[in-house]
Write a protein that binds this DNA or RNA. Structure first.
Length: 796
DNA sequence: AACATCGTAATTTTT
DNA sequence: TTACGATGTT
């Protein structure tokens, strides 16, 4: 079985539908066909339906197949009806895929799986039915981060807090974290609550919750949190769901946060038929509240739990698996798993060091072309980077060479400004009280209602306890606004009323079209000479299209608030460029892993903020990266990189040296380095400078970062500069300069403390006034108080 | 209210 | 370097 049954990239195909025929229950003694081809562990995971089960599913071990087969098994053996199953995932994509694959096995019955969805969509459904128990109406709206920040900004300003120092974004992040931990405002520990703006955090959180309630709205975190509140304060409701859900299934359990964990535990406690599937080695979302601990202590939470390990990998070659496995053993907190395969041989993982980022992108592009000539499709190749700033170099190169590529991630359809604007119009038509929507579009497109007027409007709304639209009506009838503004506002209100009337009689796509035309929105875009205006118009067309799939405006809006995911189609044959995070769950025959340098990967920030925990998560990210590859994985790192416009000298990532030597091949082919003639050195030999170990040779196992430390201590960047003239348009890095900037000194905590004298290239000399992780507040002698990253200063 | 200019800071992402 | 936001100018 060469093709995995784990998630495929969009070009993947579904398993053969023949299973659906075989899925019907057989005569006594006969196995139903859907169990065919499962290995013993997979089968145990499917057939152990009763009681708690933890499935530790390594990368590429058939996790999704087990999940879907298990559901099909429960259904086709009559243990439960579709609506008695609770199955939760993190992403819409995963939920969709699961539904599709179950349909392939059991057919139309899968449509009854109404509790299969993301945590958020299931929680939203439950909340709709009991909204009044937390002070909401069942017609509540779900706001996204943008609305959230907008709202918080108002609250922060109302408290007279400096919104530059204490940004809405920071507060939103804090509140999200609190919600992820299951804390309502009264549960926030004082220490946490006072972190924001001299102790105002908890107060603002409470105000925010009150405001949401008045708006009959909630944010994503609330969906879970309100559920938990309802369950704990109304045991009868909880019992109802505990009884209803005969079996509970959870995907990606290692990614659950505390709120999700509490929610699940409440629901699963009744019947104890809970199956969690996950992989502690692929836990890469700690920074957004995921608790690996949830999976590590499953057996304590559910005594008598059966643990199944899926370790047989159907995706990658021996060398790739061994390289990944070897690397991950450097982590301490693991449940322990070793992937294996009986597909012997294959290519070793290639590791190459090159001079700089330009050389790296050139090398990757060359290899892509070479693979292409050898018959590989572009879409079978992927470049997985740690952070998105690394993507640019590849994109530039690909544009030059006309290699088709596709960047995954980036701004998503429903998050684009024009789409959100259109939605705001629709929301306002649907519910006149939607103040957030009102504020978003009251002057979009520009209709002469500026900041001052909006301020006044807000003031009236607050004093009179009116929704913004009503406040606007009041203002129009008064003389508090300049005549011109008053007319503009009056026209806007008139338009709104007209559109609302239109919505009663017209199909909703038509309504949107009318709104966009009559509001002048499309005209404004057409006049816009910006490079994106054309695309934005097209996006709006697409939006109108996508609405037709829904009967009512209401149904449509409900959909977009939760399923912010529009598949852009498989597209054409193109190389994938994405972050390691977004590559999780995907697989590609040929994977490039560039930028394996200290500070970049593992990311300095991650280590500074979270110490060893952060480092281990980075290492899991590396593990995820390598295990995406089916046939070939290529790791690279550079000696010099331009970061934020400055040349910095880079040290190879410690992860490079943690790879087991036997499964790695240090690339030594010529032809990648530099551009100029006369460049003879090989990538490998360039690493021999220290004389301590040979990168290409046998002695390369000594830890690179340690070597590097020695080198730093010895003074100066000892990499020879192979570039004599410099070939491209960019200037060559200056030898030794990297040391001055010293971005990647492998230190955990900041090397600085209060009182230290420091020097900054731009700000000059100063004294450290406080240290927070790697962020320093420095009183500069000439430039005044600044906050800087410690990598940008040096001891004076 | 619209436009230009300056200053500042700098992962990872889903819902 | 670049992108975004806040500030200042017309």
């Amino acid at each position: 079985m060469s093709s995995g049954y784990d998630s495929h990239p969009p070009h993947g195909d579904l398993p053969s539908p023949r299973i659906s025929d075989l899925a019907r229950p057989r005569g006594p003694g006969g196995d139903p066909g859907y169990l065919d081809g499962l290995n013993p562990e997979q089968r145990a995971a499917v057939e152990t339906t009763e009681g708690p089960v933890l499935v530790l599913a390594g990368a590429g071990t058939g996790k999704t197949r087990v999940l879907t087969t298990r559901l099909a098994h429960i259904l086709s053996t009559g243990r439960a009806r579709p609506w008695e199953l609770l199955a939760v995932t993190f992403t819409n994509k995963a939920a969709r895929e699961m539904r599709e694959r179950i349909t392939h096995i059991i057919g139309a019955e899968a449509e009854g799986l109404r509790w299969l969805g993301t945590f958020h969509s299931v929680a939203a459904q439950i909340l709709r039915r009991h909204a009044e128990l937390v002070g909401l109406k069942s017609s509540y709206t779900i706001i996204d981060n943008d609305d959230q920040e907008r709202l918080l900004k108002q609250l922060i300003e109302a408290e007279n807090i400096d919104a530059k120092r204490w940004t809405p974004k920071i507060l939103a992040g804090m509140i999200d974290n609190w919600k992820n931990k299951g804390w309502t405002p009264d549960r926030v520990p004082p220490a946490d609550g006072s972190e924001f703006a001299a102790g105002k955090g908890t107060i603002l959180y409470r105000q925010y919750q009150d405001r949401l309630r008045i708006l009959n709205a909630c944010d994503f975190g609330d969906l879970l949190l309100h559920n938990i509140t309802i369950f704990t304060s109304h045991p009868d409701v909880l019992t109802d769901y505990q009884t209803r859900f005969k079996y509970v299934l959870v995907d990606e359990y290692q990614d659950t946060n505390i709120a999700q964990y509490l929610w699940l535990r409440l629901l699963a406690q009744g019947r104890q038929n809970v199956c969690c599937v996950g992989d502690d080695d692929q836990s890469i979302y700690g920074w957004r509240g995921a608790e690996v601990d949830n999976i590590l202590r499953f057996e304590r939470d559910f005594p008598g739990a059966k643990v199944v390990r899926l370790e047989r990998n159907y995706r990658s070659t021996e060398h790739i698996l061994a390289a990944a496995s070897g690397l991950i053993t450097a982590n301490k907190d693991r449940l322990g798993k070793t992937l294996w395969t009986d597909e012997a041989g294959g290519e070793k993982v290639k590791v190459s060091g090159v001079w700089d980022g330009e050389a790296e992108s050139r090398m990757v592009a060359d290899e892509i072309e070479k693979a292409r000539r050898a018959g590989r499709k572009y879409s079978h190749m992927a470049i997985l980077v740690r952070a998105s700033f690394q993507m640019r170099a590849f994109e530039e190169r690909f544009v030059m060479l006309q290699i088709p590529y596709k960047v995954v991630g980036g701004p998503r359809f429903f998050e684009r400004a024009e789409i959100r604007d259109a939605h705001a119009y629709l929301r306002l038509i649907q519910s006149p009280d939607d103040d957030l929507a009102f504020e978003r579009i009251v002057n979009t497109p520009k209709r002469g209602i500026g900041d001052t007027s909006v301020q006044k409007l807000r003031q009236v709304a607050r004093l009179e306890s009116l929704p913004a639209v009503e406040a606007a009506r009041t203002l129009v009838g008064s003389d508090e606004l300049p005549a011109r503004t008053r007319t503009a506002l009056s026209n806007f209100l008139r338009d709104l009323d007209r559109w609302r009337a239109l919505a009663q009689t017209m199909p909703h796509q038509r309504v949107l079209e009318a709104v966009l035309e009559e509001s002048g929105y499309t005209d404004a875009l057409r006049l816009d000479k910006g490079p994106t205006s054309q695309t934005r118009l097209e996006n709006l067309k697409e939006l109108v299209q996508s609405m037709s799939a829904f009967d009512t405006l209401e149904a449509y809006l409900e959909h977009v608030s939760l399923v912010m995911d529009l598949d852009k189609g498989a597209g054409d044959d193109a190389v994938w460029i994405m972050t390691l995070h977004s590559a999780k769950g995907l697989e590609f025959p040929l994977v490039f892993l560039p930028g394996w340098e200290e500070g970049v990967f593992p990311s300095q920030r991650s280590m500074d903020d979270k110490g060893t925990k952060g480092l281990e998560e980075e290492r899991r990210l590396a593990y995820v990266g390598i295990t995406r590859a089916r046939e070939e994985a290529r790791i690279s790192f550079v000696a010099n990189r331009q970061v934020y416009g400055r040349w910095t000298s880079q040290l190879p990532s410690r992860f490079v040296d943690e790879l087991p030597l036997a499964h790695v091949e240090a690339a030594s082919e010529t032809g990648y380095y530099g551009g100029g003639p006369g460049m003879q050195q090989t990538a490998a030999s360039r690493w021999d400078d220290t004389g301590q170990s040979s990168f290409g040779g046998s002695g390369y196992a000594s830890p690179g970062w340690k070597r590097a430390q020695d080198r730093m201590a010895g003074g100066g960047n000892s990499w020879s500069n192979p570039r004599t003239g410099g070939s491209g348009g960019r200037s060559a890095p200056i030898e030794g300069e990297g040391r001055l900037v010293a971005v990647s000194a492998p230190s955990k905590a900041s090397a600085y403390q209060r009182g230290d004298r420091v020097f900054h290239v731009k700000f000059g000399y100063g004294q450290v006034s406080s240290v927070e992780g790697n962020k320093l507040s420095v009183a500069f002698d000439k430039a005044g108080d600044k906050k800087v990253i410690d990598g940008f200063v040096e001891k004076a």
